[in-house]
Design a protein around this nucleic acid. Structure first.
Lengths: 145, 145
DNA sequence: GCTGAAAGAGTGCGGCT
DNA sequence: AGCCGCACTCTTTCAGC
């Protein structure tokens, strides 16, 4: 992962549908060389995939929340992961420092749906209690540079 | 936004670099029809763009945090947005219900860099105090279906 | 949705470091 | 070896209809 790879990542972060010629121009490479580099970045796992940034409102996933999860005992990250991965409303989950054990980012169609999903989280084995912050408005959502 | 558009969104969410032929197949359309639909979804803002999912470790952005922001007075979302958008380490920011006024997702190279970035957030006008949860391990990160 | 010209993707080969 | 650029073929894009 050198400066050229970084330029490729920056370019693809900005527009995942860029052509290899565009990517190459951004990195000072020819199109075939850019393709080979990008393929390698995907193969090694540095790039995990390519997605669209969809306005959640656009398909009726209006309701979003950040949920702090407090656990009983000392669950391992792997246990927490297993608990979360079966709940499709969980978009993102991290273990964190501080009072809470994990922060879980959830997306649901509406409040009712969100409540049901949060209850599924609370029902998983090591969860003692949760503290939810429902998203009122999205201020910013940048691609991760 | 009908069932066909939804199929297109699902397809592009799974792989933003899919060809129009692939997208069309997923939606039961020809390639040119798929392109016209996708172009329209981008033009209307339902799709805001296309990015790569990059392993943050892969380029030394090891340190991540969720920061709860508590403000003085009643800042409008627009004011908060203006305060955050100049800080590149802020990846995501939302106003939320509950005690905190906003949740801010930040990404930095290391702890020192994160601390500096959090201090920049605290220095912006309406922020009274912040409460940070530093990410220890990332359990899950799903494309937003 | 189809067609045809133009652009891009993807692979093999030679050269350079 | 590793990596780039060039040249080639095949696929895809995209503006007509």
């Amino acid at each position: 992962m050198d400066a050229i790879d970084q330029a490729i990542v920056r370019c693809v972060l900005r527009d995942a549908r860029a052509t290899y010629a565009q990517i190459g121009r951004a990195a000072g490479l020819s199109a075939p060389a850019a393709k080979r580099r990008l393929d390698r970045l995907v193969a090694t796992g540095a790039i995990r995939g390519f997605t669209a940034l969809v306005d959640p409102q656009a398909l009726a996933w209006h309701t979003e929340a950040f949920v702090e999860v407090y656990c009983t005992g000392n669950p391992t990250p792997a246990e927490l992961r297993r608990a979360m991965e079966d709940i499709p409303e969980v978009v993102e989950a991290c273990t964190v420092s501080g009072a809470a054990d994990a922060v879980v980012h959830m997306l649901a169609r509406d409040i009712t749906h969100l409540e049901q999903a949060i209850q599924r989280v609370r029902a998983t084995a090591p969860v003692e209690r949760t503290e939810s912050a429902i998203v009122l408005s999205r201020l910013l959502n940048r691609p991760r540079l």
